[in-house]
Amino acid sequence: MNGFFDIPSDLQHSWLGLVGLHLREALLPVLAGLLISLPLAQLCVRFRWLYPPVLWITTVLYAIPSLAFFVLLIDYTGQTELTVMIPLTVYSLVVLVPSIVDGVRSVPQETLAAATAMGFGPVRRYVQVQLPIAVPAIIAGLRVATVSSISLVSVGTLIGNQGALGNLLNDANIYNRPELAVNAVLTMAALAIICDALLVVLRLLLTPWMPRRAHTKPKADRPDPAALALEDAAR
């Protein structure tokens, strides 16, 4: 009974259970990050002077290793999923805030002037004009944040098996079952690819108004999600 999908009982989950847990621990922080980033980015657009310090703070937070975060948080939130998800939420801001700010700023001046001249108030203009036009940039940010979050969850194994699929890496070591490590890596990679693909589909559904050729155009100013994920895995 030492098959590829036979998960040691100390993890108290089936393989599918771990997948579900992993997705929850990875995606909830991205969602929370998005909810924080939207108003934060809007403030940065509205008050230009705010953007540099916000960018600086999110970058500094991103530079804190997750382990250090855990040590700080464990006194308050214990050895729980929350301790893993809080740093992931903070990390997602470094990608999401700039992509939303760039997206909202990319709305042409004429479009904004036309909206104002037609009697759009600031709120209506933000919700009906700026945000929809920023969708491609926001989703580009979400893709990076999601893929990086999926790879980062595994660090949670260090604080009492809160790393979902990452826990398999530890078990591979203690039970001397290398196939568990292979399973963990392949499953996480598959999850990352699937989530990324779903976000691309979502973008296509939300932006029928985009020229087709732009879909293949690489975003030069944004790092490749896969490269960033690899870099994060080293944390």
Binding site: P108, E110, T111, L112, A113, A114, A115, A117, M118, V129, P132, I133, V135, T207, W209
Partner: peptide, 11 residues
């Protein structure tokens, strides 16, 4: 109001 480059809502 009509503006240069039309300023249409691209979405």
């Amino acid at each position: 109001y009509v503006i240069q480059n039309a300023g249409l809502f691209q979405h």
